[in-house]
Design a protein around this nucleic acid. Sequence first.
DNA 1: GATAATGATATAGTAAAATATATCAACAGA
DNA 2: TCTGTTGATATATTTTACTATATCATTATC
Lengths: 202, 202
Amino acid sequence: MGYATEHIAKTLRKARESKGFSQRELSAKSAVPQGHISKIETGAVDLRVSSLVQLARALDLELTLVPRNTVPAVQSIVRTREPPSSGRSEEARLAQKELKRLQKTISRFLPGTGQAPNELAQLQRQIQELQHFQLSGSELAAIRSASQAFKEYWSDPHNVNAVRESLSQLKSLRNTLAHGSVHAPRSNTVRPAYSLDEDDNA
Amino acid sequence: MGYATEHIAKTLRKARESKGFSQRELSAKSAVPQGHISKIETGAVDLRVSSLVQLARALDLELTLVPRNTVPAVQSIVRTREPPSSGRSEEARLAQKELKRLQKTISRFLPGTGQAPNELAQLQRQIQELQHFQLSGSELAAIRSASQAFKEYWSDPHNVNAVRESLSQLKSLRNTLAHGSVHAPRSNTVRPAYSLDEDDNA
DNA sequence: GATAATGATATAGTAAAATATATCAACAGA
DNA sequence: TCTGTTGATATATTTTACTATATCATTATC
């Protein structure tokens, strides 16, 4: 409806997709129900500012009021810092999927083992945390590599070193992401009021 | 309440005051009731985006969603284009008051005259329109000068030239403002859905 | 001192968002 | 084919913004 709010809705959707989040994931991060996100993105509601801010924060966006005559300059800034080119959204999606796949694989493997090595739990937490970062192509490669390492352990449960290898890869990935030295900064992972998981490590 | 929306509220109030608008004036321009504006500025409500946009437009602001990491750059842009230094708010206030004073003076003068010169009506319309611009120090000077000219006419109703002088000063002021060649652009005066006054002239 | 403008509040009624749940079709993978 | 994910919708309930209107204390202006 609202001609002016339509733009907001589009921005939200684009931001979400570019980060590879599903509406349900975003719902978890922002504490806004998925159904409501759907309505918002399709412009079916005149949402309240608090809802908008909740979503924005989860998407690493900031709601600002800028003077009309500065809008072009602002847009130019935003544009130059945007995702390098195209395909980013798809890569983010794939990276997130790969993470989930690995997570699932591990959890399916766990019950079978009499006593799982310590590293397995760590691996799981690491994956858990990585899901909070915005990922892209290069990260996808690292994740796949870690996934590969775990498969080696899967096929030979004596090879604990493979787990260690996998874990170390993900840790290093997490550190690069957290320190923002290479890719998108994202120094602070978005954290909902109710914590979905505890993650804290070095 | 809303920690995040508090910032929005402050921005709105600052923008309004810096333009010398009262809540009632802003209410007229934005079609948002004064009482509601009060609640919004004091952070008593979690307003809807449509209301926020209405107010923003009336204040010549744009609601935008920008990536977190661009916020500092954006703020810097906004800051460099802001009112040169201080006292702007007070000057705007004074300029608006001066206009009102002149308007009042004229309307009080009118009934007394058997047949007011054409220029008086033009003067009134000119003032009417000028009230839609954001004014500052230099405009204040021009307005006072026009006011002075009118007083000469007041003391000597035969001196129609004084009115012409006053009118010409305001017209020139209006043109400079409208074309944005000198001060703040403001090419399009904010116009509420229901028109409060008709003003159209060259 | 009287009058007018300003901003903050209060109350009551209406409209609409927010929420919790659930369902559904389309599609992707195992 | 079966399963899980995704996005869109539907319904019912609760909460709350929005509106209109009025009051009030505080400043300014005459």
